[in-house]
């Protein structure tokens, strides 16, 4: 039980997917402009991370490893994720229209979100058990949500600030992201001390 908490909180705070592993930066910069889209995107990312981990972990352990096809990991995972995202979108559209309206438009973007492929590959390279892998995916998704939530708040201030012309737009946003990342260093060592 303790280990699961350590995995969960490490993924959210210490090894935050966006701010310390640099996964999903494109969407982090892209959708953090307003809080509503940021939350919609994060919701979709959490959903897809959990679903794709639930699917890719068994594929790797029960299919690729016994058949000595582990080298096909990248190819298989990206295709599984792409197909899965497409399927979730279709099912959601048919059965849960309100949820589709909230999250649906972000789903096609997620196939090329490196955080999703990243979490599925990391689960294998760290040789997690299935439960560990699911918790890691949940933590990764929640960490993505947390960093987007914090950063969209920072963005709303930065966009109004009067900065030198050359820094306007992307450069000042990246520097702001750098400062948010510094704040996450406060969590270093927190998780190990909290649960031991």
């Amino acid at each position: 039980m303790k280990e699961l908490f350590i995995i969960l909180f490490s993924a959210i705070l210490v090894d935050n997917f966006v701010l310390s592993k640099f996964l999903g930066i494109c969407s982090f910069l892209g959708v953090s402009k307003n809080l509503k889209t940021a939350m919609g995107m994060s919701g979709a990312v959490i959903l897809v991370m959990l679903a794709s981990t639930a699917l890719t972990w068994p594929i790797q352990i029960f299919l690729l490893n016994p058949m000595h096809l582990a080298f096909l990991q990248t190819l298989v995972f990206i295709l599984v994720i792409a197909a899965l995202v497409q399927m979730i979108e279709m099912v959601m559209k048919k059965t849960m229209p309100p949820l589709y309206n909230a999250l649906g438009i972000y789903l096609p973007l997620i196939t090329t979100n490196c955080a999703v492929l990243g979490v599925t590959i990391l689960n294998i390279t760290k040789s997690y058990s299935f439960l560990d892998a699911m918790i890691n995916a949940l933590g990764g998704g929640l960490g993505y949500m947390l960093s987007l939530f914090l950063f969209s708040g920072v963005r709303s201030k930065v966009d109004k600030a009067d900065v030198p012309a050359a820094l306007k737009g992307l450069p000042i946003t990246l520097i702001a992201a750098s400062l948010v990342a510094v704040s996450f260093f406060g969590f270093k060592g927190l998780v190990e001390n909290l649960f031991s």
Binding site: C26, L29, G30, V31, P108, L109, T111, T112, T173
Partner: peptide, 19 residues
């Protein structure tokens, strides 16, 4: 023009995007 952050051009999730 400098890329405008938050715009689709800089999102980079270029392909298969309905947005």
């Amino acid at each position: 023009n400098a890329p405008v952050v938050g715009h689709c051009d800089t999102c980079g999730t270029c392909a298969g995007c309905d947005v």
